[in-house]
Design a protein around this nucleic acid. Structure first.
Ligand SMILES: [Zn+2]
Ligand SMILES: [Zn+2]
Ligand SMILES: [Zn+2]
Ligand SMILES: [Zn+2]
Lengths: 153, 153
DNA sequence: CTCAAAATGATATGATGTAACATTCTTGGG
DNA sequence: CCCAAGAATGTTACATCATATCATTTTGAG
């Protein structure tokens, strides 16, 4: 069984567990994101599904499906790039924490990480000191990946 | 002298100091952002300048002017909201560090802060541990301001 | 003053995202 | 099984955000 298929199956079980339905179209969108392995715009996904799966899914539907997948923590939106990326932890059994994203400004690679609690707490204290309350520590950070740092050197 | 005027003068000196020109149109855009005191889209600014200053500045020019103002650190872009906001530290004489933004998800108030170096360094180490190099610690955080926390309680 | 560079304008178009209503699919109770 | 109700998807139109390209105007150094 291909890896993408395995992850999609896992996602389907995750949905079933609380009565949500990972329909065929939703599987296709999720599969596309998993196959590509990097962030794509909604319209990129329209094209990809047309080209790779022969499925014409209108943009409106893609947006709705992306909303659903985000609610299920199967996909995340990167506001810095207006793109969407498959969750890197779909097959992990632990509950999904608030993710942080490292975005390589050179090759666009994206890494989804979970920064350790003590760092987040430090950040939270900084925010409280400024008179605000941190609601969600989802962060998107402008980075360079290891490869791009090497090649630049 | 009004406060906005004072800040704009300071900005003009800042530009002059290295041969950049804070033209009249650029002053108008910056003044608009300062008067409003919150984040606005480029098209919001087109309308505002038309209504408040009787200046019809085409959107294309507004975008160019915002680009200029960002390079001068007089304005920052909030990617989370696709909006622009005047820098909170124009009249500070110290060099402008990399800012972080706290955005109230309820009333849209924005606070520009500079998180202390040690926190940023901790964050940087977390990023390095993930095999990436942090290029810019500009962060946009989904928060609630103190007032909105109170009123919700 | 003159000319080149900088700034701004005009026009078109691309990219991203949502509103509103229609149609189709799914599913559980009779 | 059948049907009604809700969920999912389709259609159309439009709103919003942003850039490409070329023309014109403004500015300032020489
Ligand atoms: Zn995730
Ligand atoms: Zn890279
Ligand atoms: Zn600033
Ligand atoms: Zn608030």
């Amino acid at each position: 069984m291909k890896n993408v298929e395995r992850i999609v199956n896992h996602a389907e079980n995750h949905c079933k567990a609380h009565g949500a339905r990972l329909t065929n179209k939703r599987k296709i969108i999720l599969s596309g994101l998993l196959e590509v392995g990097k962030a794509m715009s909604a319209y990129d996904l329209v094209d990809y599904c047309k080209d790779q799966f022969g499925e014409s899914i209108p943009a409106m539907s893609v947006y709705r499906i992306l909303d659903f997948l985000q609610e299920e923590n199967l996909v995340h939106k990167l506001s810095l790039a207006n793109k969407y990326i498959a969750c890197a932890h779909i097959t992990c059994d632990h509950a999904h924490g608030v993710p942080q994203f490292l975005i390589c400004g050179n090759c666009q690679r994206v890494e989804e990480i979970t920064i350790n609690k003590s760092t987040i707490n430090t950040l939270r204290r900084n925010v409280e000191d400024a008179g605000f309350h941190l609601v969600s520590p989802q962060l998107e950070m402008n980075c360079l990946c290891h490869d791009c740092v090497e090649h630049a050197a």
